[in-house]
Amino acid sequence: MALRLLRRRHSRGGSGVVPSLSVPLPPGAGAFGLMVVDPTGQPMGGAEVTVTARDSHRVATRGTTDPHGYFMATLAPGSYSVLTAAEGLSPAREELDIAPGVALPPRHIALEPARQLELPTAGTWLFDPPHTAIRFIAKHVGMAHVHGRFTRFEGGIRVAPNMADSHVSVRIDASSISTGNNTRDNHLRSADFLDVERFPYIDFTSTRFAYRGGSKWTLHGTLTMHGTSRSVGLDTTYLGTVNGGYEQELRCAALAKAELHREDFTLNWRSMLARGIAVVGPTVQLELDVQAMYHTHDTPTPPK
Results as ranks from 00 to 15, higher is better:
residue 8 R to A: 07
residue 10 H to L: 13
residue 10 H to Y: 12
residue 11 S to W: 03
residue 11 S to A: 15
residue 11 S to R: 12
residue 13 G to L: 08
residue 15 S to E: 11
residue 16 G to F: 00
residue 17 V to W: 03
residue 17 V to R: 11
residue 19 P to G: 10
residue 19 P to C: 05
residue 21 L to F: 11
residue 23 V to C: 12
residue 25 L to F: 04
residue 27 P to L: 12
residue 28 G to Y: 05
residue 29 A to Y: 08
residue 30 G to S: 09
residue 32 F to I: 07
residue 33 G to Y: 05
residue 36 V to F: 02
residue 37 V to Q: 09
residue 38 D to R: 03
residue 39 P to E: 10
residue 39 P to C: 09
residue 40 T to G: 07
residue 40 T to E: 12
residue 42 Q to R: 10
residue 43 P to G: 12
residue 44 M to H: 05
residue 44 M to G: 01
residue 46 G to T: 05
residue 47 A to K: 01
residue 47 A to I: 00
residue 48 E to M: 03
residue 49 V to A: 13
residue 49 V to W: 01
residue 52 T to F: 03
residue 54 R to C: 11
residue 54 R to A: 15
residue 55 D to T: 14
residue 56 S to K: 06
residue 56 S to I: 03
residue 56 S to C: 09
residue 57 H to C: 07
residue 57 H to G: 10
residue 57 H to T: 09
residue 59 V to N: 12
residue 61 T to P: 00
residue 64 T to P: 01
residue 65 T to C: 09
residue 65 T to W: 01
residue 66 D to G: 07
residue 66 D to Y: 00
residue 66 D to T: 02
residue 66 D to A: 03
residue 67 P to C: 01
residue 69 G to W: 00
residue 69 G to V: 05
residue 70 Y to M: 09
residue 70 Y to I: 02
residue 71 F to K: 10
residue 72 M to G: 15
residue 75 L to W: 08
residue 76 A to S: 15
residue 77 P to M: 09
residue 77 P to A: 14
residue 78 G to Q: 13
residue 80 Y to D: 03
residue 84 T to R: 01
residue 85 A to N: 14
residue 86 A to C: 13
